[in-house]
Design a protein around this nucleic acid. Structure first.
Lengths: 349, 349
DNA sequence: CTGAAAGCGCTTACAG
DNA sequence: CTGAAAGCGCTTACAG
């Protein structure tokens, strides 16, 4: 492999000159610039990134970091979509993308991950940091590495999907359809900031319509389809009068719908079930899922651009990306015959 | 950040000693070893990877490379699963994982990708290399970087899913159900080795049962759900006598099922539709999809282990990972009333 | 068993 | 506008 020195000799200039020409420093004769570039071409020279990194302190690598918890991340189609958004921007800017999925176990740090962060091997970090009890960004910030968070840990510049608004949209949709005996399939408390925001949105919307959120039956799933099915079973068993179930993600919603079918309920005629995320399958599920679309690709794009802005010395503002209610076939008006099964606990406005 | 030199001073030894102790070279007094390790702890020393890479030529980075074509890769749940398998092994061995998705346009190389490969920034490469007209591994091999291919390009040590056997299993299943008017939803020719193998398997199984594969109506989709729906529409329009449709992946199968429903066909009573891949959604789709499970996680695990074997100086053999037919609700026996609509073109054994 | 010293391939003040 | 030289933080023969 030819080195900078080979190029310098071939072009008849110093290594300093080659280096500066290649990094687009101005103040060079057109002649020397051409000589250098020609030599680069002649020799097929490609800079050694390790050497460049060592002397300049810049690696042109950015790391995408997401905690490996609950097996949730690698099973989440949105994650791949976010990564795609990041990869596109990196590719445009000539940056490389390192992937790290630190094992997050309460109280125990992932040694490999800590070493990676402290090794100085990246110019910046984009994190999916939403686990309250342990921030993957914490060691990054301690080391002073530029970082952007796709999430709610408040420590850095962040881009977030408007989960709160999503919760409101979802609850309003269900209420607008005339439902008031509504079950919830959630996830364990204190596990994820995004779902907490969604819950807050649901709560606010319910309160605004005079419905006591705390009285709504709620069971906790684990993000997975199987978990959604189990939750649906539990919910319908204890509360056969429900007319709607709101799930905090699509995978649980799909599991819930399947379970409801197996229990003999027709969705949406007898039971409305809605999800959150608008994963690719949502549109082609039977029935197609009413859900909230969060623009995952945009989240990735924006996070990357934001990081590059920081790397360019700017101080970008955090951004919230809007969400959209996507109404499909899994939600329908509450039917009168079911509504009258029991008396409403609260009067509606 | 403390350097090797700081550690050496703190421990009262030379940098060479520190370096060797840290890389587990034998032949050291227990005393000096302890001194060094204590100093490392005292100072919180973490090696600078760029420096290490420059002087040793080892980066402890492996790159996972997959071509960005047809938008297919980033939308494929199996890819994330394969990456998970690779990441797990890397994490175990203390390696980091770089992701690169070179844009593959016929005849035009991705400049960034070529630079990355030639930059010496990785110890090894795992590729998802299945696009016949352009191998992402080609520049890797030219540079002499150890590589493993998850796919069929013959140039390297490879791990592959047994797509041919999958094709046979799928066709036999459909034939065993009594179908013989079978439509195919494929992908464009010469686009992907894996789908070619599946087609060969389907063809062989058909031939073995006396069915002329070339007489079966075939339309080409684009891997996507929407494409599957379009293909299903075209197929049923021209061949309303079909009793089964075999799709080369699950996403197209799910689109096809949805389209069939919209056209008023009942799956599987009137029409059997099967897929390939067993993506997470397949199990919870309505009806649940009969499909071929290829163990994506295992593919990733094996590919990584194989690469580490090469890095350890061994010469592992290529492996084929078995597949499994998963029979679910989207396939059912051909019904007599439909079978008699037209006379069979060929007699079955 | 341990150390002095060269070298990996770049970049970057500093001169001129 | 261009170059000589130091330095980035490691590893690795080579001595002893």
């Amino acid at each position: 492999m030819p080195t900078l020195e080979d190029v310098a000799k071939h072009a008849g200039v110093s290594t300093a000159t080659v280096s500066k020409v290649l990094s687009n420093t101005p103040y060079f004769t057109e002649a020397t610039r051409l000589k250098v570039l020609q030599a680069v071409r002649d020799l097929g020279y490609v800079p050694n990134l390790a050497a460049r990194a060592l002397s300049s302190g810049k690696t042109h690598i950015i790391a995408v970091v997401f905690p490996y918890v609950y097996d949730a991340i690698f099973s989440d189609p949105l994650v791949l979509r976010i990564i795609e958004g990041i990869e596109t921007e990196c590719s445009l800017r000539g940056y490389n993308l390192l992937l790290s999925a630190p094992r997050l176990i309460e109280g125990v740090a992932d040694e490999n991950y800590l070493k990676l962060i402290q090794s100085g091997y990246m110019d910046g970090v984009i994190a999916l940091d939403n686990v309250p009890f342990a921030s993957v960004l914490e060691p990054v910030l301690k080391k002073g590495i530029p970082a952007v968070n796709i999430g709610y840990h408040a420590s850095t510049c962040a881009v977030r999907s408007d989960d709160y608004a999503g919760g409101i949209l979802l609850m309003n949709h269900v209420l607008d359809l005339g439902h008031h005996r509504i079950g919830l399939i959630s996830v364990p408390d204190n596990l994820n900031f995004t779902t907490e925001q969604r819950l807050l949105g649901l709560r606010a919307a319910a309160a605004a319509r005079g419905l006591s959120f705390d009285d709504l039956p709620l069971v906790q799933g684990d993000f997975s389809t199987a978990g959604g099915a189990d939750c649906c079973m539990a919910l319908l068993h204890q509360h056969p009068d429900l007319t709607a179930i709101i799930c905090l993600n699509d995978r649980m919603a799909m599991g819930a719908i399947q379970q409801a079918h197996q229990l003999g309920w027709h969705v949406p005629d007898q039971l409305t079930i809605v999800g959150y995320d608008d994963i690719p399958t949502a549109a082609i599920f039977v029935p197609p899922l009413t859900t909230i679309n969060q623009q995952a690709l945009t989240l990735g794009n924006e996070a990357a651009r934001m990081l590059f802005d920081i790397l360019d010395g700017q101080t970008p503002e955090s951004r919230t990306i809007p969400v959209e209610l996507v109404i499909r076939g899994s939600s329908a008006p509450a039917r009168d015959d079911r509504k009258e099964d029991t008396a409403p606990e609260k009067s509606l406005s």
